[in-house]
Amino acid sequence: MQSRHVHVVIARPAGEVYEYAADPDHLSGWAAGLAQGEVTRDGDLLLVDSPMGAVTVLFAPRNPFGVLDHDVALPDGTTVHNPLRVLNHPDGAEVVFTVRQLGATDADFERDVAAVAADLNRLKDLLEA
């Protein structure tokens, strides 16, 4: 199993990037690989229509460290842990998402990496506009 760290530098303060990305109301605006349309809350769980079907998402509790790790429960019952961090960077913030291959084919893994990169670039474009 391979992992790849996909990252982008955003010319905004890390705290601002974290607060925006942590807000479930913003997910469908930048995280198309996870959320398509409205996000519904059920306590700490988020109910999301995703490209994979209806999923539930549980983010790490708000924290001062920029940790946005989240577990995604897929329609087949599998739960995938997704490490996501917002780090201080000399030019603002660096957002790092670790994509893990798990059981995916090499081609599917590359598609996942490309989808995550597109999502992070969409976040960058929104926050730098």
Rank of each mutant, 00 (worst) to 15 (best):
A54L: 15
W30K: 00
L74S: 02
D91I: 06
L126W: 06
H5K: 09
A73P: 00
I10G: 01
V67R: 13
A107S: 12
D44S: 13
D76V: 01
F65T: 02
F59E: 09
F109I: 07
H5V: 08
D76N: 04
D44G: 06
N121P: 00
R111E: 12
R41M: 12
A32D: 08
L87I: 03
A60K: 08
V86T: 00
V48Q: 02
A35M: 07
L58K: 12
A60R: 07
V86P: 00
A31T: 01
E94S: 07
A73C: 09
Q101L: 12
H26A: 11
D76S: 01
T105N: 03
R111D: 11
R41Y: 03
A118I: 04
P51V: 10
T98P: 02
T98I: 09
P51G: 06
R12L: 07
P24S: 13
V48C: 03
L27H: 09
R41G: 07
Q2P: 09
S28T: 10
S50H: 13
L34D: 01
R122W: 10
F65C: 01
R85G: 01
L27G: 02
Q36R: 14
R100N: 12
L68N: 01
H70K: 02
L27S: 07
E94W: 05
F97P: 00
A115K: 14
R122G: 04
W30Y: 06
R62K: 15
G43Q: 08
A32W: 08
G15K: 01
A54F: 12
E94Q: 15
A54P: 13
L87M: 14
F109A: 04
V55I: 13
L47S: 05
R62C: 02
R62H: 14
V48Y: 04
A104L: 15
L34K: 04
T56F: 12
F65V: 04
E16S: 08
L102I: 13
D91R: 12
V9T: 07
D23E: 15
L47A: 02
D71M: 12
V113W: 06
A35F: 05
V57P: 02
V72K: 09
P51F: 14
M1G: 15
A107C: 05
L74M: 15
D112S: 14
A118D: 13
P51A: 09
H26N: 15
G37H: 05
E19G: 01
V39P: 03
D108T: 09
V6A: 06
L46W: 07
V39Y: 06
T105R: 13
P24E: 06
A129S: 14
H89S: 02
N88M: 06
D25G: 11
P90W: 13
Q101D: 11
G37A: 06
T40N: 09
P83I: 08
L68A: 03
H7M: 04
D76L: 00
